[in-house]
Design a protein around this nucleic acid. Structure first.
Lengths: 340, 340
DNA sequence: TATTCATCCTTTAACGTTTAAGTAAATTAC
DNA sequence: GTAATTTACTTAAACGTTAAAGGATGAATA
């Protein structure tokens, strides 16, 4: 179909090797010949066959990325930011990105690793890895370099990118504390997410150090808007309500806000609420959601960089933890303040 | 490094062909041998080399997808929905997805087509193709099947997926019209987007048929929140304000709402506003944004399906136009209604 | 002048797989 | 009991490229 290196060689009456070298600008080919070869390549609309090249060089120049494809319109753009970051960084370094679906039926039979091995992928990025993922042991012993976002798993070839959850929680808590809040509830993500543990631990420690921790104020959500809504309503039923809610995801914060508003609360006067992630929706909700911001694009880039550095043999870190930022909007209020 | 078919053959003292056939369950191999081969494959941790397979079969089983990687935290999850849909459909059919960045520096040198050709990609999905894209002519004459979302370009191998913009606009306008609005402004997307033309034409026709079109009420936004904000403010400066605004994207509607609120308007009493897309943010903004919903996931799936059908030689449509739905929330009000 | 060297090209093999064609042995046909 | 058929394998070639090693020519060196 398409012209090959052979066609060019035949046309010029030279060897395929010469053509290959000419096209790759090797220096044992005369400039003259290079010009002639390139001209014919142009004429024949030649296009290098990456597949053949990869076979012979035994290098795929490809990174694998795994994502959920059964996505609800809700499950927000955070994952998309990872992907954009990874892609940017990979393409910049002449690497291709192979995107895999984790919930395609493909994965029922084949593991992450298997999928990658068959395609001779040089590294992979995962996110949303649950602590009970059945493939974790396989990951740990994987010969393939893998960047995992937000789940810190020990392994020789495992790299880790995350946001400093402890600092994030501390920033949020400091802010609430300084506003005078003492009874602070937490709606946490599901327990199979490592970040939930980190955030919970930080939350508990923060309040314990101030003798204000009440385990009855910690609620097990699952990151979803629905769970935020559910626990928001539950919180409203309490005899002694907290004055502030820390949600481990913006989506849950948004759900809780919905519940609070429905019940006729005036926010932030009747309840302060703070989130985690900084989704775009959080800017638009009323009141604007104060939240701990994670830079998803940066996380994606770092995840790719770790892999690329490792592959290139450049020594680099094995873990990158980014600093979160507190985005202050209007969803929190000082505890004594009159309704504005 | 990894075991190959040869290693298995050597170990069993048989030919590589026999091994290949056994692994692929061809029927001129005895069940006995198949079992033995598979056992050894297991033992050697054999993993098929997809690259070699693709070279010899001359089939890449790969679809290319192009997206912006320089994404702002704003530019919302809509594109992500396309990708999720495409991925789901592709993986279901044993196809890989190669993700390319349109704004990587890669593309400065190489065209979409070139990138695809080199990787022997069997089809590609594009979106966000502007009417002034320099590669359009190349696309038109492309031998490669290409699905383009939201830009209808004529070409033998070009497939098209979109939402019925005319119907979408009509639904929005009917709704506003029935609420009594007669002076309706439009904040349109940028003119290099074909959907902008479609939406504008539908908008104009709708009002002309009712003798209510005023060209002075059409404003040239660019889909972004900022442009919505800008034109929202401009609208406020008008002596004779419209009573309703139709924004060609939710992002612009959100921006306009911001402007209106800042100026102290009470929504929807002082101004009705309607969007297009149904972003997740639109659910959370106050008042909830009434909007024309597009199903991004479905669009992605359809785009992939068209390609897959075509590749498999299954006759199918060349264009798929999905029906939009009007999502009624709280951002529009009847024109005579008292403030609630 | 003979030797070394650089330049520029060719020959050969390889990457891991599939496919077409071939073949020997076992089975069936009549 | 020989021919035809089926079964179960093997041989050889191919996919498009790169890489290592080799060779011919002419220029530079001693």
């Amino acid at each position: 179909m398409t012209a090959t290196i052979k066609d060019i060689a035949k046309r010029l009456g030279i060897s395929v090797t010469a053509v290959s070298k000419a096209l790759n600008d090797k220096d044992d080919i005369s400039d003259q010949l290079k010009i002639r070869v390139k001209k014919v390549a142009e004429e024949l609309d030649y296009s290098a066959n990456t597949i053949a090249k990869r076979l012979v060089t035994n290098k795929s120049n490809t990174l694998g990325v795994f994502m959920f494809s059964r996505v609800s319109q809700k499950l927000d753009s955070f994952v998309f930011q990872f992907i954009a970051g990874i892609l940017e960084e990979a393409n910049k370094n002449d690497y291709d990105i192979l995107l895999f679906s984790t919930d395609s039926d493909l994965l029922n039979e084949k593991s992450y690793i298997k999928l990658c091995k068959e395609r001779r992928v040089e590294g992979a990025v995962l996110f949303g890895v649950r602590l009970d993922d059945p493939h974790i042991d396989e990951l740990k012993s994987s010969p393939l370099p893998i960047s995992i976002i937000d789940t810190d798993i020990e392994g020789k070839n495992i790299y880790y990118v995350s946001t400093d959850n402890r600092t994030g929680v501390n920033k949020a808590m400091d802010y609430l504390w300084r506003l005078g809040h003492r009874r602070i509830a937490m709606i946490n993500g599901h327990e199979k997410a490592q970040v939930s543990k980190f955030r919970y631990n930080a939350f508990r420690q923060y309040l314990r150090e101030r003798d204000s921790f009440e385990s009855g104020l910690v609620f097990p959500g699952d990151f979803s808007q629905e769970s935020g809504y559910y626990w928001g309503r539950e919180i409203l039923k309490m005899e002694q309500r907290p004055t502030a809610v820390f949600a481990a995801s913006d989506l849950m914060a948004l759900g809780a806000i919905q519940a609070f508003k429905e019940a006729g609360l005036h926010l932030p006067h009747d309840m302060s609420i703070i989130g985690f992630d900084n989704l775009s929706s959080s800017e638009f909700v009323e009141p604007g959601l104060t939240t701990v911001s994670q830079d998803g694009i940066k996380m994606g880039k770092e995840a790719a960089k770790l892999l690329l550095d490792r592959i290139a043999g450049r020594g680099s870190e094995q873990k990158v933890v980014l600093q979160p930022e507190l985005i202050i909007r209007d969803s929190c209020q000082s505890i004594n303040q009159e309704r504005g």
